[in-house]
Structure formats: structure tokens, C-alpha cells
Amino acid sequence: MATPALTLHHMLDTYGDYLAYERGLSSHTVRAYQSDLQQFFAMFHVHGDDSLETLLPTLELNDVRQWLAQGTAEGASRATTARRSAALRTWSAWAYKKDYLPHDITMRLRSPSVDNRLPSVLSINQVEQLLTYVHEQEDRARVAVKEMPGDMQIHRQWRICSRDVAILEILYATGIRVSELCGLCISDLDSAERVMTVTGKGNKQRRVPFGVPAAKAMTQWLRLRKEHLRQSSAPDDDALFLSIRGKRIDPRAVRELVHHYAHAAGVPDIGPHDLRHSAATHVLSGGADLRSVQELLGHSSLSTTQRYTHVSPERLRTAYNQAFPRA
């Protein structure tokens, strides 16, 4: 029996399985790498069920460089270019081992430098302003329910508002990634100890604590979550945070609600990652050591934590005055 032709769809699926099950990469990274590879082959007008058997033996390093340069010319950031480069290097090494390529075409590809500019950081007062605003919105929704208890639309708005409060409180209280937040399950939450089990990159788990305000917001959301599940046609019973329809919430929805509330609260425009960086910065400024912040953020390397946590000039001056004999 003849071997079926190798199509782009088949290779993307096989490559995705390799990334997920052998490399242990997150579903977000797997999708990103597959998308990068799909765009690379689109440069050769290869799509979907098109065969790759004629093209693959002809690929060279210059093809990869041309595609990366094209992306840069179209405005791709250095971080995006670095990810695309990593996706193609990983794929090329894998494809060579699978005998899809006659040689590893990216062996001499240099990794582009990553943009080390820090994300936006809210001050402690700005975070308070943001969280106060979302709590006020939840209070208004609760009052509206009392005034019109039979209005199911108002009930749903209250539940969603309560969920949003819990999401923002948890994002700031824990500094977890948006993908980690969306992946949380009910069983990951230990309300009594105020800690949660977070599954990060490479399926590595860590225990992350959270404070009293976040715990109160979670208690309120968990109570309303039960009603939200009952009102949903196809609920996800295991997901901690739910969409309007009762499914597990996705990262895009979380990003949209963070941007929405930041704008409405009158603070600088931020996303979930900026809340993560703000939390880490505030913990560090409060006296935490870098190693503890590394554990909190789930970084495998301390050098990564050093990039995401900068020391405020005030704390640096205080430490200098206290420690240096000729300060």
C-alpha cells in the first residue's frame, strides 16, 4: 500500500503532538508555533491539504531568514520575531529527525535579541483605583438585583461583574499568567489556606498564595458561579472562571475585560501581563527577595525574573544608604 502524501495539515498536527506531549509545551505555545509554521509555508503558497513532499527537500536557511525579515519589515516586534525563530528552529530539528528534511536547515540560524523593555507598571494607588472601581460596579449590580429580583438579565450582569472582580483581584494578588488563570479548575483552589495550584509553562505546577481581598472576591464569585452554571445550557463544571455561556473563559476575553476596566477606571491602559508585572514589582518593593518573586511568577530562571522586576529608585536609595559604608 502506498504511503499517503505528507500534507501541511498532517505535519502541523504531528508537530503539535510532539510539542505538547514530548516537549511539554503549553497549549498556547503549541498553537503559536503551529501558526508560525503555517505562515512560513504560506510564503510558498502551501496551505491545508497541499503536499509538502516536493517543497521540503528544497528548503534552505535563506528561506527562513527571508520569512523572518519579511515579518520584521511588516512591523513584527522583536519578541514576535524571536518566537517565530524558536518555532522554526524547533520544527527544523524535529523534521530532520523525522526524515522530512534532508538536513536541519536552521542549525546556523542565530536567535534574534529579545526586546528587554519592561511592561507597563501601575502604581499601588492606580491598582487601588482600578480595583475600587470594579468593586463599585459589582455593588451597583447587587443593588440592581435587589430592586428588580425577577430580571434575569440583571442577575446575569451581577454574576459576570462578580466574576470580573474575582479575576482582577486574583491576577493582581498572585501575578499569574492569563493562560494560567484561564486553566484554573475548581479543584486547584484551596480557599481555607488561601492558595491555589497553578499549572505553568511545561506543565510545571506551583502553589501560589493570595490575600484576603482576593479570597473575599473568590467567595462571592463561587457562590454566584453555582447559579451561573444552572443558567447555562452547556456548562463547564470544572472550570473556575466561566464565560457568559458557562464555558471555560479564554485568554482573549480576560484581556478584553482588563483593558475595559482600566479605561473605565481612568488608569493607564494595561493588560493581564501588566498586572502580573505590577504585582511582582510591588512585592519586590515591599521587601520580598528575588528568589521568592521567581517562585511566585513561576520562572525557571532567575535571569527572567530580573527582567520582569525592577527596583524602585526609592528602595535602591534606602538600601544603598543602609548598606554602603560611605553613603
Score class of each variant (00 low, 15 high):
L6P: 06
M11V: 15
L12F: 06
T14G: 09
Y15R: 05
Y21V: 11
E22Y: 03
Q38R: 15
Q39G: 15
A42F: 10
H47V: 14
D50R: 02
L56P: 06
T58A: 11
Q66G: 13
W67Q: 10
Q70C: 12
A73S: 13
S77E: 05
S77R: 00
R78Y: 11
T81Q: 13
A82V: 04
R83N: 08
A87K: 08
R89T: 07
D99E: 13
H103G: 09
D104S: 02
T106L: 07
R108S: 15
N125M: 14
V134C: 04
Q137W: 04
D139W: 11
D139H: 14
R140M: 12
A141R: 09
V145P: 00
M148P: 06
Q153L: 14
I154W: 00
R156W: 06
Q157D: 13
R159W: 10
S162E: 09
G183K: 02
C185Q: 15
L189R: 04
D190E: 06
R194W: 01
G202D: 01
F210E: 07
A215L: 00
W221R: 01
D236A: 02
D238K: 10
L240S: 00
L240F: 04
K247S: 13
D250S: 08
D250E: 12
Y261A: 09
H263A: 15
G266T: 08
P268F: 04
S278N: 09
A280Y: 07
V283G: 07
G286M: 09
G286T: 07
G287A: 00
V293Q: 09
Q294V: 02
L297E: 07
H299A: 03
S303C: 01
R307E: 13
R307S: 14
Q322S: 12
P325T: 05
A327M: 02
